[in-house]
Design a binder for these strands. Structure first.
Length: 252
DNA sequence: AAACTTATCAACCGCGAGAAG
DNA sequence: TCTTCTCGCGGTTGATAAGTT
């Protein structure tokens, strides 16, 4: 279901994420936040483009991301908001805590859109029509199961007011919005360590210039850089405007 | 059992908005 | 203003699981 790993012309990995990459990214962001997506993979030791890291974090690694099993309430919310907002997936996702725009978009295209077409007059969840594939039937079964699980699930307005406990909040997407407007002191970073990040030791503590140095300019930062390269050559890391990378990456 | 078809969803791509210089 | 850069969004792709013939 995932794309095979491959490498772009700059040597950056594309396709499916390995558990090791996931762990590196998760540990890095939970420890330091995502201060700059473009630069992040370099510091996190990932040969990925920032965009890919961002997507992976938001859609998969971020705490409190719910997966699968949409409740009826969530489904109704999606349908209703889609009627109101159209394909504003990110806006819809904001109303569904734990769901990502990508996931909602996928869900819409694979489940709801089809049903809307089959029964445009009715925005209710409809019974499985005869002749529908077995797989669809399984989906409905899963949906019904999830419906039971979430029998008391609130409407989207209630979902909207969903608030996380202080504990979950501290380990949730709030972290994902941490920017370097907020410059944590080293002891404050232990806050992340409290999350029980197994590989938090992967990253050495930065020196005091770490957060204000936009680019690697000397070897003292090499520990954050994988593969170790001259940062000045890294400038267009995630852009489409450099031919330097084949050589750079081939060094490692 | 094999070949073919369909559904799913993670991930990629391109573009636009907004911020900063 | 204009340019550059980063981020986020929405559309699309493609590998693979699941179903059908």
């Amino acid at each position: 279901m995932v794309r095979n790993p491959c490498y772009d012309k700059y040597g950056r990995k594309k396709g499916a994420w390995s558990p090791e990459e996931d762990e590196k990214l998760r540990a890095y962001i939970q420890r330091y936040g995502h201060w700059n997506w473009r630069e992040l993979p370099r510091f996190a030791g990932l040969s990925r483009c920032g965009k890919s890291c961002r997507l992976r974090w938001l859609n998969y690694l971020r705490p409190n991301v719910k997966r699968g099993n949409y409740s009826k309430a969530e489904e109704e919310t999606i349908k209703k908001l889609h009627e109101e907002l159209g394909n504003k997936w990110s806006a819809i996702a904001k109303k569904l805590p734990g769901r990502t725009d990508n996931e909602i978009k996928n869900y819409w295209h694979t489940h709801l859109k089809k049903r809307e077409r089959q029964n445009p007059a009715k925005s209710q969840v409809v019974q499985q029509p005869p002749g529908t594939s077995k797989r669809e039937g399984d989906d409905q079964k899963r949906e019904l199961e999830s419906e039971n699980i979430h029998a008391d699930a609130p409407s989207h307005y209630i979902l909207e007011s969903f608030s996380m406990s202080p504990e979950s909040e501290s380990s949730s997407s709030e972290i994902s919005t941490l920017s370097f407007d907020y410059t944590p002191a080293v002891n404050e970073m232990n806050w992340f360590a409290d999350e029980g990040i197994a590989s938090s030791e992967t990253f050495a503590e930065p020196n005091e210039n770490f957060w204000t140095e936009p680019f690697l300019t000397d070897d003292s930062y090499a520990q954050y850089c994988y593969p170790p390269i001259n940062a000045s050559l890294y400038d267009s890391y995630c852009g489409n405007d450099t031919d330097l990378f084949p050589d750079i990456w081939s060094i490692s």
